[in-house]
Simulated assay, not measured.
Amino acid sequence: MEKKYFALKLIPPRPTFAMDMTDEEKVIMQQHITYWTQLMQEGVAQVYGPVFDPAGPYGFGIIAVDDEEQVKSITSNDPATAVNHYEFYLMRAIFPDKKA
């Protein structure tokens, strides 16, 4: 089955979240990093990390999965959802020609 690619946006609870996390929120976000590192090692996450938007930082990732149900499972199991929420969108991934 051909993989589908999804763009995920992790939206923090407030625009200043990256600068003023509580100690409890820092622990949650460390668990989030561990979770996404595992997804990267498994080949599910293609890229992930914070986006330093001047209007307020947020998390971003691109994943390769079989279907939307897998996206929902990945996002709902992320420890970060204890304080953040996700938006996700199907995308058409374009890759460079490796023959060149």
Rank of each mutant, 00 (worst) to 15 (best):
G56A: 11
I74M: 05
M29G: 02
G56L: 06
S73Y: 09
Q30Y: 05
Q30E: 14
I74Y: 02
I33C: 04
I63K: 01
F17V: 04
D23I: 03
V51P: 03
P13E: 14
Y86T: 07
V51K: 12
A55P: 00
F52I: 06
I63E: 01
Q46N: 09
F52N: 11
V47C: 11
S73R: 12
P50M: 13
P57W: 14
I62P: 04
W36Q: 03
A45I: 00
T81H: 04
Q70N: 05
S76N: 10
T22N: 10
D78W: 02
P13N: 15
L39M: 14
T81R: 07
T37M: 13
T16K: 14
T37F: 07
F52Y: 14
T75K: 00
M40R: 11
E42W: 10
N77C: 07
T34V: 10
Y35L: 04
P15D: 08
Q41M: 09
S76P: 01
M21D: 04
P15G: 06
P50T: 11
P54C: 09
D23W: 02
I28A: 11
V83R: 03
Q41G: 01
P50G: 15
A82T: 08
N84K: 02
T75D: 01
K72T: 08
V83E: 05
G61Y: 00
Q41P: 00
Q41E: 14
M21H: 06
D20C: 10
E24I: 04
D23T: 06
D78L: 05
Q46P: 00
E42H: 08
T34W: 01
Y48R: 04
V71S: 06
Q70P: 01
E69Q: 14
E68S: 09
V44F: 04
Q46K: 15
N77L: 09
A45M: 03
R14T: 13
D66F: 09
F60D: 05
W36K: 02
K72R: 15
I63T: 01
I28D: 06
G49T: 13
M19L: 15
V83T: 15
L39F: 04
Q30P: 00
P57V: 07
E24Q: 10
V44I: 15
P57M: 13
P15E: 09
F17E: 03
N77Y: 03
M19Q: 15
P15Y: 06
K26I: 14
N84M: 12
K72C: 07
A45K: 00
P13M: 10
T22A: 08
N77M: 09
M19K: 15
P50N: 13
D67P: 05
P15S: 08
D20A: 10
V47N: 10
S76L: 04
D78E: 07
I74Q: 03
P13D: 15
I28N: 08
